[in-house]
């Protein structure tokens, strides 16, 4: 229980603090400030000095509490006086407008699209101009959408080519954007003409050409009388837009469970111009594999209740990093994820 003396002391300090605010507001110049300083801090008759005399009379048990109260006040007085002094040093603030509103604002560093986003948009733009729409789907998928509906039976060895990060027996991180093909075909009837950009995941140890997460752009066209010629024409147009009108392109037989027939698409090696037998980019073959494609397997159509006798279609998929690495001569896929500004700033929207 604090003594009545301590209560009185606290009241005196509170009163001094209340007065301080008013007195500070009344200060107009250096003389006023000096006067105020003397009133509180003078060694002979200053308010703090007087209160210090009162403090000396407290019993030892109450000295810490009383001392703390007094100290807070002293610090507050010193800070307020310092602030006032600072304010008086400046030229009269109200005399002229502080800010010239006609000056340009201060520039903050601008954010920018990530190189992968820039490249993805470039790809999207080409397909949007051709009349494709954009679809997307979840990154956590079920085994059904990621594999089974795409014609990978449960024990199919082709599953080994899609190293998968499983969450449990049924859930996994999608290994490709292809499950979105199934999700779209379940909901929509043909004609379908979409691209599917998105993040995919693989159980990979990162190295210069592999990452556990990367970006794909998938394409799907379904309609009556769709043929491989449409696939070839569309992809040739796309690749020439991206890499130039004179680009050499070849289609090579391949295998994906969800397309039949399947083809991988190679483009000429731009690094060596198909001339260097020791080229590190193409391994001397003169060609660089750039995407996978094929005619939608009739079994996939059956899985989504589209009649393969009436409809046909094609699909393709490509790795965004892979194409960007090739287009810009980037030697290591990991540069995309390190967010080193010296790397990121080298890419700009066209």
């Amino acid at each position: 229980m604090p003594s009545p003396d301590l209560e009185k002391f606290r009241a005196a300090i509170d009163a001094a603090r209340a007065k301080l605010a008013d007195e500070c507001a009344a200060v107009r110049d250096g003389a006023g400030l000096e006067d105020l300083r003397n009133r509180y801090l003078s060694r002979k008759r200053g308010l703090i000095t007087q209160l210090f005399e009162d403090f000396k009379k407290f019993a030892p048990a109450e000295k810490p509490a009383a001392g703390q109260l007094l100290n807070f006040l002293k610090v507050e007085v010193q800070e307020k006086l310092a602030a006032l002094e600072e304010g008086l040093k400046k030229p009269a603030a109200s005399a002229a407008p502080a800010v010239d509103l006609t000056l340009p604002g201060e520039r903050l560093p601008w954010g920018a699209a990530h190189p992968l986003r820039i490249f993805q948009r470039e790809i999207e733009t080409i397909f949007l101009e051709m009349g494709f729409g954009i679809a997307d789907g979840p990154e956590i998928e079920t085994d059904f959408y990621n594999f089974e509906a795409l014609n990978f039976p449960p024990d199919h060895p082709a599953r080994d080519n899609w190293d998968t990060l499983y969450i449990n027996d049924n859930l996994l991180l999608r290994t490709h954007t292809s499950p979105v093909q199934i999700r779209v075909m379940e909901k929509r009837k043909p004609p379908i003409r979409i691209i599917i950009p998105g993040k995919v995941y693989r159980r990979e140890t990162p190295d210069p050409t592999h990452a556990a997460m990367f970006f794909q752009v998938e394409g799907l066209v379904v309609d009556r009388n769709i043929t491989f010629a449409h696939l070839k024409g569309t992809l040739e147009y796309f690749l020439k837009r991206l890499f130039g009108e004179k680009l050499k392109i070849r289609f090579r037989p391949s295998f994906f469970p969800f397309t039949e027939p399947s083809a991988e698409v190679d483009i000429e090696c731009l690094a060596c111009g198909q001339k260097d037998p020791a080229c590190r980019v193409c391994g001397g073959t003169g060609w660089k594999e750039i995407l996978g494609s094929g005619m939608v397997d009739p079994q996939v159509f059956k899985n989504v209740n589209i009649d393969p006798e009436q409809y046909s279609g094609w699909a393709f998929g490509m790795g965004v990093e892979r194409i960007a690495m090739f287009a810009y001569g980037i030697p290591d896929i990991r540069y995309f994820y390190e967010n080193d500004l010296r790397f990121n700033r080298q890419f700009h929207l066209k």
């Binding site: 070849r250 090579r252 037989p253 391949s254 295998f255 391994g283 073959t285």
Partner: peptide
């Protein structure tokens, strides 16, 4: 061989 689907590099 590569062009008939047997990649051989």
């Amino acid at each position: 061989l590569t062009m008939i689907g047997l990649i051989c590099e």
